[in-house]
Structure formats: C-alpha cells, structure tokens
Amino acid sequence: MPIKIPNDLPARVELEREGLMVMSEADAVRQDIRPMRIGLLNLMPQKQKTETQLARLIGATPLQIELTLVTTGSYVPTNVSAHHLSTFYRTWDEVKSQKFDGFIVTGAPVETLPFEKVLYWQELEMVMDWTLTHVHSTLDICWGAQAALHHFHRVPKHELPEKMFGVYPHRVLDRTASLLRGFSDELAIPVSRHTETRRADVEKVPGLEVLIESDEAGVCLVQDKAKRHIYMLNHLEYDAWTLRDEYQRDVDQGLPIEPPKYYFPENDPSRDPPNTWRGHAHLFIGNWINDAYQTTPFDTDLIGMS
C-alpha cells in the first residue's frame, strides 16, 4: 500500500524515483479504508532531507499511511523556507486535538544545551505529555529520545569528550522483542552525538528495557511499554551520504573532527561510503508500524484511552 503525503512535497519526486508508491490526497479520499495516521514532529534543520528519509521507510510498509508533518509554534525554524513550512507543515497547536496511531519526534542540533535552555522546550514538554493521551505509539529519535527520557524519567544526558561519530557495531539484547523481528544478532547503526545516555541511568527506572547497545557507542534503543514510547538514540533512518555531509560541513567550518569511524572504505573520505544499515532500518520501522497496527483501536477516538 502507498503512503499519503502532501501532493507537492519535494520528497515525493525522490520517493517516486525510488519506486515507492505515493498516493495523492484525492485518491486517498476515494478509498474506503482507515489509514494508519502518523505524525512527524520534525526538529531537524534540514527538514526536506529528514522528511524524505523517514517517509521512505514509513511508505515501504504494506499498510496505507497518512503522514502529517508537524512543527513547533513557539519557535520558527530558520533553516527552511517559510513557504515550505506554511505549505506542508502544521504547528502542534493545529493538530493537538487529533489522534494518531504513531508519532515521531526527531533529533535536533541542540544536544549540548541544557534541556530547559532550548527555545521550544516548554512546548515540547506539552507535546510529550500530549502523546500519552493522543498517540498510540511514539518513536523518539536521537536528541528527541534523550528529551523524552529526561522529561518522563529524569534520565540525564552526559556530554562526551569528543563527538561519537560513525557507523558502530551494535548487538541485539532481546531477540524476543517484537520491534526486533528479523534482526541479525549484530548490526551496524549510524551514530552522530556529542552526548550519551548511560545504561546505569536507564536501569534505575523500572519498566525501561534496553534492546540494542554498542560496546563503543553505548545505549541505542530503549523500550518504554508503560508510556508507549520507543527511544532510538541513533540514526537508522540516515542515507548513505548523511554522515559524509555532516563531516564535510564540520571540516568546512574549521571544527576539530575526525572522519566517521567504520564508515568510509579504508577510512578514506574520498571514497563512497556503503549503506550497511538500510535493511535493518526498514525492518525496524516496519516492525514499529506493524505493532501499532495490531494494537491500535480502529476507532481513533479511543486512542490513548488505556
């Protein structure tokens, strides 16, 4: 089944080029079907890249998905055109009366700031509380995961002496977890963080389960069944070129940065990096959506009621 996104969203061209079925809004209206409703609170500066990366994974599942792009109302991003925001995004205040089967909160380039110093922190706290009553399953990514862990459980983030940057080997800790159906015992996952969430802090909170971790990069995936939140601290959604672009950006700005570890062939930035995580990215998002589909109420008014 296809994914329904706004008709003129730039991501549509790339997704159709890749062979993904993308449904027009007019066609979706004609179908007598209850689509899975997923909201994407996109806090990343390069919004169009993030839209494409996540829509690619969401749209590859066999269910019909209706994707709603959401932005903050208390802070207006400056890295994206006002036209793009006004055309394709709705503020959280505009959608907060709606119910969603799934909701994604992305990372943001603010991880070295104290949470309370982030300009839209107060609004984000309201969003996180709102997910408990208006969303069936929430996926928090990178800083979004750290923010939710801090908000709900006061789990701290710790600044690293240098950026954790590369495609690190990880291992699955619970092979019975439905989120990890089909996963290899070991897998490579892109990491791009200046801070970390420590397992010792997570284990202090009853009900939190670490599902994936890395000897070098630490905690990666945490499940919170009671609050129906999934905390993904790394970036399975990244394209093959994303870390290369981040590396080149830092080099151009004269920042002290080493090439991403385990990424470029023979650690040579002039060589094209392979995407070694794509299959697990599709599995992860597919499993998340399937779990939500199997358990979400058919009547959307009942979402968040139990």
Rank of each mutant, 00 (worst) to 15 (best):
W130D: 01
D224S: 07
K47H: 05
T242S: 15
P259Q: 02
L85C: 05
P10S: 07
A226Y: 14
L124E: 08
F103V: 08
F100D: 09
D27K: 12
N42T: 06
A145N: 11
S74F: 08
E213Y: 08
S74L: 01
R154V: 02
E51Y: 03
P259N: 05
R30S: 15
F88T: 01
V219H: 10
D252K: 15
M23T: 10
T276Q: 12
P35Q: 06
G182D: 02
R30I: 13
R12N: 09
Y75P: 00
S192N: 05
Y231P: 01
N7A: 11
D101P: 05
S81E: 01
R90T: 09
K47E: 03
W92S: 07
M21D: 15
L69M: 11
S184F: 07
R199Q: 13
E196Q: 13
L43P: 01
E186P: 01
L41E: 02
F152K: 14
K96V: 03
P10R: 09
T276C: 09
A217F: 09
T242M: 07
N42K: 03
F165G: 00
H136Y: 11
P269M: 01
H282S: 09
P206W: 05
F115E: 08
Y168M: 09
F165E: 04
L124V: 00
E123M: 06
G218L: 04
Y75S: 14
H150E: 10
I257E: 08
Q53H: 13
P10F: 07
H194Y: 14
H194W: 14
E237I: 04
T78E: 11
T138K: 02
R244D: 15
K4I: 15
I58N: 03
F103H: 05
F115P: 02
Q48H: 11
F165M: 00
Q46V: 12
D129S: 09
E51A: 11
S270I: 00
L9R: 07
Q146D: 13
L85G: 03
V155K: 00
R244G: 12
Q46Y: 10
W241G: 14
A292P: 00
F152S: 06
S86W: 02
E237L: 08
F264G: 05
Y120M: 04
H83N: 15
P109T: 12
G19I: 02
E216P: 05
A11E: 06
E16L: 08
H170G: 04
K157M: 11
G144N: 08
V76P: 00
A292I: 14
L179H: 02
K225G: 12
L187S: 03
E25C: 09
T61I: 14
A200L: 10
T112V: 15
S81R: 02
